[in-house]
Nucleic acid binder design. Structure first.
Lengths: 200, 200
DNA sequence: GTCTATAAAAGGATAGAC
DNA sequence: GTCTATCCTTTTATAGAC
């Protein structure tokens, strides 16, 4: 049986994702969880504390919620990167192209976030790109030896966020697909470079 | 002497950019413009109509406000692309890395926008990428003949939006710089491919 | 920890005189 | 077109009993 805290964080993860932080009222959270005001404010002194709880849940759940499902049955390190992007694609399609990255949306919606909130958004991005960086390290000599793996991993996040933003705006997954296609070309060219230089 | 409409749109462009749409109240617009409620609602029947006016202003001003300043003194079509990104970089630095693309931020803040609003956001993105696509066309044979120019232009927007998002979140322009560096590598590899195939 | 009731403020929008 | 005053709703948060 879920605690009040778990109910609230679960509802908030969904509602902040669907409606945004500012457009989700505490009353929305209460009606969704069937809790009363007193219970919520007993656990979370303010609405912002709910946001902190949500961001911590994403931070703590990245492996189980995101990476494990995306990488099930995928071994090749570079294919793991595109398998993760493919998971985002299914989410875009399943939501009729209204999908937004929950972290990215909060990153742009909150214009003057508290340091604690901003740090948690940053940590979520960092953990995502660290996972990609791990794949790049595993790819070893398939990439040119001087590849800036951190920059390349961040570029994967950049492509995802930009692709999601445009697919959502245009309500057309093609915009995401084209971003992925360009990123794939980028990796293909890097791999081709690595081979050429290895030979020459 | 500016009309009430111009004052309101000007103030709204700034405040929606600084604080976001939901966090900007009509009272904020009134105090900034020194207008009274009646004047605003005479011109704009609702707050959302102000948003429409703002998005139309960005749409109509892209050449004068964005492209002309970015491209002053730059002729090379591919350098024009990176000159535009360099303009974003200066805006990031000038705002102490709090800069957000006004259109991209609205695209992610508004979760269930009216069709009119969503179309205007989409048109703003389209005009931006069309401008880049023009550069790619001007680049002619420097790019491989089968280059998907629309997809590549959208990828430039993707890189900008993703780079801006991360630079803002981490309050570190390095995140934007690395995105641009990766995009530059992408173009360099495309140009190298075009040369190789032209020879072979 | 949870309940009900309510405070206190901010929000978008309107009315009617000028 | 602009002025002042104000309505009505929503919102975050609190009080105090149980």
């Amino acid at each position: 049986m879920p605690t009040a805290r778990e109910k609230i964080v679960g509802a908030a993860m969904e509602l902040f994702w669907l409606k945004g932080y500012n457009s989700t009222s505490v009353a929305d959270l209460l009606s969704r969880t069937q809790l009363n005001s007193g219970s919520l404010y007993h656990v979370f002194p303010s609405k912002q504390d709910v946001l902190v709880g949500v961001l911590e849940a994403y931070r703590d759940g990245i492996e189980e919620m995101l990476l494990a499902p995306a990488w099930k049955g995928v071994d090749d390190p570079i294919e793991k990167i595109f398998a993760l992007l493919a998971l985002y694609r299914t989410m875009i399609v399943e939501t009729d192209c209204t999908y937004g990255c929950p972290i990215g949306s909060l990153a742009l919606e909150l214009h003057e976030p508290d340091p604690q909130v901003r740090d948690l958004i940053a940590v979520n991005f960092e953990n995502w790109t660290k996972a990609i960086e791990g794949c790049l390290t595993d790819a070893g000599k398939r990439l040119p030896p001087r590849t800036d793996k951190r920059a390349l991993a961040q570029f994967v996040l950049t492509a995802m966020e930009g692709g999601v933003m445009q697919a959502r705006t245009h309500r057309d997954v093609g915009y995401f697909d084209r971003a992925v296609k360009q990123l794939r070309a980028h990796f293909d060219m890097l791999e081709a470079m690595a081979k050429t230089k290895a030979r020459g």
